[in-house]
Amino acid sequence: MYVRAAAALASVTGSVVIGVLVLPTAAQAASWHDRPVVVAHRGASAYAPENTLEAVDEADDLGTTWVENDVQRTKDGALVIIHDTTLNRTTNVEELFPDRAPWNVRDFTAAEIAKLDAGSWKGAEFAGERVPTLHQYLKRVDRNHQKLLMEIKSPELYPGIEDQILSQLRKDGWLRYEHVKHRLVVQSFSADSMRTMHERRPQIKTGFLGTPAVADLPAYAKFVDQINPSHTTVSADYVSAVHALKGPHRKQLEVYTWTVNDAVTAQRVAGFGVDGIITNNPDVVSEAVDD
Rank of each mutant, 00 (worst) to 15 (best):
H182K: 12
A270R: 02
G123Y: 05
G271P: 05
A127C: 02
N69L: 13
P282I: 01
L79N: 01
M1T: 15
I277D: 00
T265F: 10
A30C: 08
L62D: 01
V285C: 09
W103C: 01
R183L: 11
D60P: 01
R73T: 05
D34V: 02
A266P: 06
V239L: 01
A7M: 15
V22A: 11
E151A: 11
I161L: 04
P218N: 06
L149Y: 14
L87K: 00
V289A: 01
V234P: 03
V214H: 01
L53E: 07
A110Y: 05
Q252I: 03
Y158P: 02
T257Y: 03
E95V: 09
L169S: 06
S31I: 00
V93Q: 00
G43D: 10
E254P: 05
V269E: 05
V39A: 09
Q226S: 13
F97L: 03
M150H: 08
F108Y: 01
G43N: 08
T233E: 15
L62N: 02
E68N: 09
K122F: 13
K171H: 12
W32S: 08
E125D: 01
T196R: 15
K153R: 08
H231Q: 14
M1Q: 14
P155V: 10
D76C: 03
G210Q: 07
Y256C: 05
V269A: 06
G160L: 09
A8H: 12
D76E: 03
F208A: 05
K147L: 08
L166C: 07
I277E: 00
T279P: 08
R140D: 10
V93K: 00
I165P: 03
L217F: 12
V131M: 05
A118E: 03
K246T: 11
T211M: 12
V234G: 03
R4M: 11
K75D: 04
A236M: 02
N281A: 15
D275N: 09
Q252P: 05
S167C: 10
T74E: 06
I227K: 03
L134S: 00
H135T: 14
F108H: 00
G173S: 12
S11L: 15
P229R: 00
A213P: 04
E129C: 03
T90R: 11
V20D: 15
T211G: 04
E156C: 11
S45E: 15
D117P: 02
E129V: 02
L134N: 00
L209D: 04
A27T: 10
P229E: 02
L148E: 07
T259L: 14
D61L: 13
H198D: 15
T85F: 08
G210D: 07
A40M: 13
A8L: 13
